[in-house]
Design a protein around this nucleic acid. Structure first.
Length: 271
DNA sequence: AGACAGACCTGTGAGC
DNA sequence: TGCTCACAGGTCTGTC
C-alpha cells in the first residue's frame, strides 16, 4: 500500500539504524515473493556492510561493496528495525540481521513485494533502467509532461501513474493531484494544454512533498519503520471520500474505475 | 508503440 | 456469529 511518501518515510526511518552495520545473517521464512528470494542474495549479503540506503521510484536500494538489494514493498509490504529478540509474526518473510543486535524485518501479507540481489549498478537493473524522472527532481516539469503526452489517448490519470512517464505517483496521489489541478481524470493525456500541465506538475510535487513531510498516508494498516502511523490521511481532498462534499464546491465526490483503478474526483471542479 | 486486461496474494469490511 | 463477495496503497507481463 505504500506510495512514494511511505517508501521515503521508510527509507529515512531505517537508514540511520543500518548504515555502517555489517550483515551477520539473512533469515528467509518464505521466499515466495513477487520473484523468489534467491539463495544468492543470502550468500552474497552475509558479511557485507550497508554503505547507503537509497530510493529510486518506490524501490529501496541497500548498497554494499559486493552488490545491492533491490527491495519493493508492493501493495502491503513494510520494513521495521527490531532487536534480535523480537519474535517473528505472521507474514514476516525475511530478516536481515546485523552486528550489534538489530535486524531489518520485511513483512508483506500479499507478497507483491520483492527482494532482489544485483552485483551491478542497481540503477541499470532492467526494472529500474527505463523508469521516468523523480517528481521532486528538476527534470520533472509541466513542460516534460506536455512533451511526453503528445499523441497519447490514454486517460490522464493512467498517464501520470505510468512509472515510465514519472515515478512515484500512486493511486491516492494521482486523484489528489488531478483534483488540485482541476483536471478530469478521464481527459486524454494528449489533449491537455501546456499551462494545465504546469499546474499538474506543481500539484504532484506539492502533494507528494507534503505527504513526505507528514510521514505518509495511513488508510488501514500502513505503519512506518518505527511502527507509527502516517498523519497525511486527514489532508486527502478526494481519495476515499465517495459521496462526501467537495471541499471547494460542495458537490458530492464521485468514484469511478479508470485504468482498472478506483478514482475519486469532483465533476464540477475537474474538467 | 500504445492501450488494455490479467496476473500475482491475503486481509478486511459490507451485506446478508 | 458466520458466510460470501467485492475491493484494497503496485506494477509486471502478455495480447491485440
Amino acid at each position: 500500500m505504500p506510495e512514494l511518501p511511505e517508501v521515503e518515510t521508510t527509507r529515512a526511518g531505517i537508514a540511520p539504524h543500518i548504515i555502517g552495520r555489517s550483515v551477520t545473517g539473512v533469515i528467509v521464512r518464505d521466499r515466495r515473493l513477487r520473484w523468489p528470494v534467491t539463495r544468492r542474495l543470502e550468500r552474497d549479503l552475509v558479511g557485507q556492510t550497508v554503505n547507503a540506503v537509497r530510493r529510486r521510484a518506490k524501490y529501496l536500494l541497500l548498497d554494499t561493496n559486493a552488490g545491492s538489494v533491490i527491495l519493493h514493498l508492493g501493495m502491503s509490504g513494510s520494513l521495521r528495525v527490531l532487536t534480535h529478540r523480537a519474535a517473528p509474526q505472521k507474514h514476516d518473510h525475511v530478516d536481515v540481521r546485523f552486528r550489534g543486535g538489530l535486524l531489518l524485518r520485511f513483512n508483506d501479507p500479499r507478497r507483491f513485494g520483492c527482494l532482489l540481489w544485483t552485483r551491478r549498478d542497481p540503477l541499470r537493473h532492467p526494472l529500474l533502467m527505463k523508469l521516468g524522472p523523480e517528481p521532486l527532481e528538476n527534470e520533472f516539469s509541466g513542460d516534460y509532461l506536455w512533451r511526453r503526452s503528445r499523441g497519447r489517448q490514454l486517460a490522464i490519470k493512467a498517464f501520470i501513474m505510468d512509472a515510465h512517464v514519472v515515478v512515484g505517483v500512486g493511486n491516492i496521489y494521482a486523484s489528489e493531484a488531478l483534483f488540485g489541478a482541476g483536471i478530469h481524470p478521464r481527459r486524454p493525456a494528449g489533449r491537455i494544454s501546456r499551462a494545465r500541465y504546469e499546474s499538474l506538475a506543481k500539484e504532484i510535487r506539492a502533494v507528494l512533498g507534503a505527504a513526505i513531510k507528514a510521514g505518509g498516508t495511513t488508510l488501514r494498516d500502513y505503519t512506518d519503520s518505527d511502527g507509527l502511523p502516517g498523519y497525511f490521511r486527514n489532508a486527502l481532498a478526494v481519495y476515499d471520500r465517495k459521496n462526501a462534499p467537495c471541499e471547494r464546491c460542495g458537490e458530492a465526490i464521485r468514484q469511478e474505475v479508470i485504468g482498472q483503478r478506483s478514482t475519486y474526483f469532483c465533476v464540477r471542479c475537474q474538467r
